[in-house]
Write a protein that binds this DNA or RNA. Structure first.
Length: 573
RNA sequence: GACUCGGUAGCUCAGCAGGUAGAGCACAACACUUUUAAUGUUGGGGUCCUGGGUUCGAGCCCCAGCCGAGUCACCA
């Protein structure tokens, strides 16, 4: 066990005292709650205090202000904070003031959960508060919570803001940083709004495999695992696209899934190894229809997280999600921002363009990747307001139907907002022979060294051979959409538990370290147990150390000679 | 993966030509009749991320490592 800090020791002592007073610090009983903090603060009216003559609520103690026989505590429940007021002589009408003097003043700490009953009133300072008649201990907290204070001007003092601690101990982050909680509430609201929208069309939410024998539907390096009973490798999915399309083959006309995907790639402020993608496939539609569907969807989502407003502040820009959004052909965008007309260029010519534009290229990059590099470096960041970039080159889009007017292009769009890709959609490729050729192209790329080129999924081809109706499909990165709608620049701020390296467990002192001080080997385990580390031991008086160790020896009935004080004193030299 | 910055009390941070470790909040004790970052007085609290090295002496200098952040590279 690690060494306890002073404050942790004090809290354990308080826990013990509560038990001695007959108070269960961890009761099992239901605590009936009649009101929330937010309800009371919103609805209390000075002219009708009788409406809140009897309230009962529960929450965590966030601050304590004690003045003689009056005490104020901020109680935080899931809806917010409310002040509660304790008066000694009302809590303890008799001579025995223990409940107030001991339990409230001394044994209740910041972080503890309590339940309170009383009536609502307004203090002389004008704050709506609860006048307590009765209170119940619900949970004793053994670790001190960081105390974040906000003054009258709204300045935050002693913010708990070290990213490492915030992500590793998200539970603490959520307790003391209300704005963090707000982001995650919005995240859920975004997903709910999308679900509502899809369901209003009658589309079906489905679940497809996360463990896949062939990781398909995207170009990315997968995580590999192994199934023991089948003795085969399985991959954590990088996308769910191919499975949803199989369901369209099976006769569903609209299916969608919010899917956790996994990609074994680098991590940074826009990439987490697991992330959430929403994909939806709708039969008998094309990408033009899907653009209208998408812009209306995002308008709906923006309004539902934003009190009906379509405008969202993102950094120093205001983004308006109001439909419709402009459609810009990819080649036109490249022409506009680079001056080059790349339509009809071959790989060689594209390399030349990249060189002239100062874009680095590698030999294994094919046509698709070259065009993508040009667009990514020279165009993408120009599109701040939501814009559909349409008609991607066929080499970039192996699962997308060829353009009805130009076989070098595909019927694909990406939605760019604030220079970033938020959505990706196609008129889905349903020609099984074409799909087979595209997979084979990908296979060649992978032989050339592109380790992200797609695998060939023969079962998926078989499904297409049975026939898939014309279908439009859309994918949206939920994490990135959430970042945008909550004005966050780091993906870690919109994922509760972002992936991090495991915490180092700091090595406890080795046995040699103890013996070096002069402690006999037989006593080392006892010294470890009693003091944890050498400096803790040395912070005590030799007499205390002497007594504690001999006490342990007696307690454990160890057959070793008792320590002499003079011997112990030498350890402190 | 490269570079830059950071890791000191429960939290936020300071620290210096290398010379026994500081502040605010939190904690403890006392005072206080409804306080608002409550206040006042007093007090306790630290393997200065880890491991080596230089030195009479290292939180500080050197080397190696760990963890995090930022920038870049990679990334449909």
């Amino acid at each position: 066990m690690s060494v306890l800090s002073e404050q942790e020791i004090q809290r354990r002592e308080a826990l013990q005292k509560l038990r001695e007073l007959g108070i269960n610090p961890y009761p099992a009983d239901e605590y009936p709650v009649t009101h929330t903090a937010a309800e009371i603060l919103a609805n209390f009216n000075d002219h009708e205090p009788e409406k809140f003559a009897q309230v009962s609520l529960a929450g965590r103690v966030m601050s304590k202000r004690i003045m003689g026989k009056a005490a104020f505590v901020d109680l935080k429940d899931s809806t917010g904070k409310i002040q509660v007021y304790f008066n000694r002589d009302e809590i303890c009408p008799s001579e025995d003031k223990t409940l107030y003097n001991e339990v409230i003043k001394k044994l209740t700490d910041i972080g503890d959960f309590i339940g309170v009953k009383g009536h609502v009133f307004r203090t002389q300072m004008g704050e709506i508060s609860i006048h307590i008649k009765e209170f119940t201990f619900l949970c004793k907290a053994l670790r001190p919570l960081p105390v974040v204070k906000v003054d009258a001007e709204g300045n935050v003092h002693d913010a708990f803001n070290d990213p490492e601690q915030r992500y590793r101990q998200r539970y603490v982050d959520l307790v003391v940083n209300p704005h963090v909680k707000e982001i995650f509430v919005k995240r859920t609201r975004i997903i709910q709004a999308m679900r509502e929208y899809f369901n209003s069309f009658g589309y079906l939410e489905v679940e497809t495999p996360i463990l896949q024998p062939i990781p398909g539907g995207a170009a990315a390096r997968p995580f590999v695992t192994h199934h023991n009973a089948l003795d085969i490798p399985l991959y954590l999915r990088i996308a769910n696209e191919l499975y949803l399309k199989r369901l369209i083959v099976g006769g569903f006309e609209g299916v969608y899934e919010f899917a956790k995907n996994f990609r074994n790639e680098g991590m940074d402020r826009t990439h987490n190894p697991e992330f959430t993608g929403m994909e939806i496939y709708i039969a008998y539609k094309d990408y033009h229809w899907m653009m209208r569907f998408t812009e209306n969807l995002l308008e709906h989502v923006a309004k539902s997280v934003n009190e009906g407003n379509t405008q969202v502040q993102v950094g120093d820009k205001t983004i308006d999600f109001k439909a419709p959004y402009p459609r810009v052909r990819m080649y036109d965008a490249i022409k506009q921002y680079t001056g080059f007309d790349i339509s009809g260029m071959n790989e060689e010519q594209l390399r030349g363009v990249c060189n002239q534009l100062g874009i680095e290229v590698t030999p294994e990059m094919g046509k698709g990747k070259l065009i993508d590099a040009i667009f990514g470096e020279k165009c993408e960041h120009h599109f701040v307001q939501p814009t559909f970039i349409i008609d991607y080159p066929v080499e970039m889009s192996p699962l997308c139907k060829k353009h009805r007017d130009n076989p070098a292009l595909t019927e694909r769009f990406e939605l760019i907002i604030n220079g970033k890709e938020i959505a990706n959609a196609y008129s889905e490729l349903n020609d099984p022979l074409d799909q087979r050729e595209r997979f084979e192209e990908q296979f060649k790329l992978s032989q050339r060294g592109d380790d992200e080129a797609m695998f060939i999924d023969h079962d998926f081809l078989r499904a297409l051979e049975y026939g898939m109706p014309p279908t439009a499909g859309l994918g949206i990165g939920i994490d990135r959409l959430t970042m945008m709608l909550t004005n966050q620049v780091s993906i870690q701020e919109v994922i509760f538990f972002p992936q991090m390296k495991p915490e180092q467990i700091t090595a406890a002192p080795k046995d040699e370290d103890w013996t070096e001080v002069g402690i006999p080997e037989a006593w080392v385990p006892l010294a470890k147990e009693a003091f944890g580390n050498i400096s803790t031991m040395r912070s005590l008086k030799p007499t205390q150390v002497h007594q504690q160790l001999n006490g342990l020896r007696k307690k454990k009935k160890l057959d070793i000679p008792a320590l002499q004080l003079t011997e112990v004193e030498t350890w402190f030299k």
